[in-house]
């Protein structure tokens, strides 16, 4: 028992020290950023990102730091990564639009018809859309159960059942749409100018060039090469070194 207590205490101390160290690093990085020492801030944020790869705030700060270092491709990549989890975050959206303006990036989402009609869908994350769908399903099933148990007003319950059913169908299609977006593999060009080849080799012919900040879909991998597809339908192979994968 004594051993168990001492082990728990030691673990607690270790976790506390680690947490304090991380907080100091965050503060340090903020100070570097404030004083325009973006290189120093970047190295700290990168180390934190390795430890906490899914922390949205760290990803966002990385985007900002890269932006300040004129690495606009990286900045767009990190912003897209952050927005994948938190699409309603206005700060991320704003900074992403600024970065896109600087590289004249072609954002397919903003131009598509579905986004013109259902623009608000952009603000729903996969998690939120799933939870909405599940809550509506719960409402539907609960109403059905009440009907079975013959409790409350049967007519009212039927009406509720129809409404819940319709909304559930809508939320389900919404979830499918968000899931397709979530599961899509995307990337951003991080080099100033990148040649896209007809196959996974530099000996093959160059099809076209893309510039820093250009966003694309990933079709398949072949070693250090990726087959990419642009929003205009152009396809080609590019070396992974010039790309940022989201």
């Amino acid at each position: 028992m004594k051993y168990l207590v001492s082990i728990c205490f030691s673990l607690y101390i270790l976790i506390s020290i680690s947490y304090a160290n991380n907080m100091t690093l965050i503060e340090q990085a903020s100070n570097y950023y404030k004083n325009n020492k973006f290189e120093n801030a970047l190295s700290i944020y990168e180390s934190l990102h390795k430890k906490f790869p899914n922390n949205i705030d760290i990803i966002y700060n990385l985007g900002n730091t890269h932006f300040k270092l004129n690495n606009h491709g990286y900045a767009i990549g990190f912003y897209l990564k952050a927005i994948k989890w938190d699409p309603s975050n206005s700060d991320i959206r704003y900074n992403l639009s600024l970065a896109r303006e600087l590289v004249q990036s072609d954002s397919e989402q903003e131009n598509s018809i579905i986004y013109t009609i259902l623009g608000w869908l952009r603000f729903l994350s996969i998690n939120v859309s799933f939870n909405i769908m599940m809550i509506l399903l719960l409402g539907f099933l609960a109403t059905l159960r009440f009907i079975q148990l013959q409790k409350f007003n049967r007519e009212l319950l039927f009406n509720i059942l129809i409404v819940c059913g319709l909304f559930f169908i809508l939320s389900f299609s919404m979830f499918l749409h968000r899931y397709a977006h979530y599961s899509e593999e995307k990337g951003v060009v991080i080099t100033k100018k990148l040649a896209v080849y007809s196959g996974p080799s530099e000996t093959l012919s160059i099809l076209f060039y893309i510039h820093e900040g250009y966003e694309f879909r990933i079709n398949k991998f072949a070693g250090d090469w990726i087959e990419i597809e642009l929003s205009n339908g152009f396809k080609g192979w590019a070396p992974i070194s010039g790309l940022f994968l989201i």
Binding site: Y19, F52, N55, D57, N61, D91
Partner: peptide, 11 residues
Amino acid sequence: DLRYIKESIDI
């Protein structure tokens, strides 16, 4: 200009 970085980060 950019919206500022997040200073208080919940790790």
